[in-house]
Design a protein around this nucleic acid. Sequence first.
RNA 1: GUGGGUAUAGUUCAGUUGGAUAGAACGCCAGAUUGUGGCUCUGGAGGUCGUCGGUUCGAGCCCGAUUACCCACCCCA
Length: 449
Amino acid sequence: MALQAPEGTKDLLPSEARFWEHFKQMAFGIFARYGYVPIETPVFEQTELFVRGIGEATDVVSKEMFQAISGENLKKLLAGDPIKAKSRLSLRPEGTAGVVRAVVQNDLVPQGGAPAKLMYAGPMFRAERPQKGRLRQFRQIGVECLGADAPSVDAEAIIMLMRFYGAIGIPLPSMRLLVNSMGCDSCRPAYREQVRAFILDHKEDMCDECLHRAEINPLRAFDCKNPHCSSIMEDAPKITDYLCDDCRDHYATVKQYLQVADVDFVEDTRLVRGLDYYTRTVFEVQVVDGMGSQNAIGGGGRYDKLAEEVGGRSTSGLGFALGYERCVIALEAAGVMFSRDNTLDVFLACVDDSVRPTAFELLQTIRDAGMSAEMDHQHRSLKSQFKLADKVHARTVCILGPDEVAEGKVKVRNMGTHEEKLIDLEAATKFLGNFGGMPYNGVMPSIEE
RNA sequence: GUGGGUAUAGUUCAGUUGGAUAGAACGCCAGAUUGUGGCUCUGGAGGUCGUCGGUUCGAGCCCGAUUACCCACCCCA
């Protein structure tokens, strides 16, 4: 049997690869309006970064990371020999840790300096069991704002995220924006204890998993899908009742700014992001229909302790990531499809093989003049060359036969109007520029309903 | 990691209680139209029935194993 792509990976075939480019450009274009600039970090990092940054106890780190070990080091490990910490590498399961590391390492937020507003796009890797909306290699676009703690940063990030979803074509009514505050070092520990105590008070009615959560990370019990647990957790203490004054003010301001921008949201005191680094504002965007069970198309929050966690000076931060593949599912569910059409400025058809050298030369001339051009490479009949031209949506076809070549001419057919003209070979490129309309400029496909 | 489902042509799928040469639609190729696309008509090519093993006179169909994919749990974008 022929080899297949690894489990949980997917090829982006031409039409979708094209759409991914469009998707990325659309996002970067909007984020740039909010002052974000691009950054590229490695797709693998020292494992230590993720362990410290994301949290050792999280599922993402404890069981979903792909280790990236060199062949030599793998031999050592298999032989039971130790390897250096810096040789222990992992494919990135998310983008934030790497960007924060890059900010610290390159001092992108010098003391007293302006905030660093960074955006990135690329593949992430998690060794999970694939299902709808969940791949082992998937694409995320994200932003990180480091060095600014004002609630306006949180609000504008959420606003531009929602603006992007709208711009790419996800209908507003199909989305649900959830927001919450998780408090900070000074108020969360006390709250956490309250939740733990609450769970233990109701331990007869909770599932085993939640009892386990009570010890590891009690807040996660809010996420339990077990209807029994979630109904009990309805009555659990609410974080909003335990926020310190600073956190309460921060949260209130974020919500106020969202309202000013006409961004609808629902407060969800049970929203608890599963990565350890979040503080204060957290948010998630869900799509209501057609998503399967993975319905979150984006999420993020504030992480004021993360920079310290990876060894930098104290730097507040906020970011989000959005999942490309899940957005595609949301778009499909909403009936918005990306165009599969490509177009070509010129297709060169040969009447017989004797004119191929002339055709090949003309082909290059047309391409050098900045137009897209193609010819048959399979010795097809003239008729099927036309069929091919039609299939690739050629705007014009140049017909070269012995008659034309003998006269130093080429016949040009406009495929839309069926109009044909015999012109001088020398003047061909100039003529083609006008005859077929604007040259195709090789960019993005159009979105159509 | 744990469950459940699926696997037949390039694609989407039929295939009866196990029976002879495994079908359809779309797509592809060719011709009708010997230098011209889309529409139409005619013809053609294309299958190790995922893989390995078992039951049987006989397996696409039944049984076992295996692989892949899909869906769900878990978790997250």
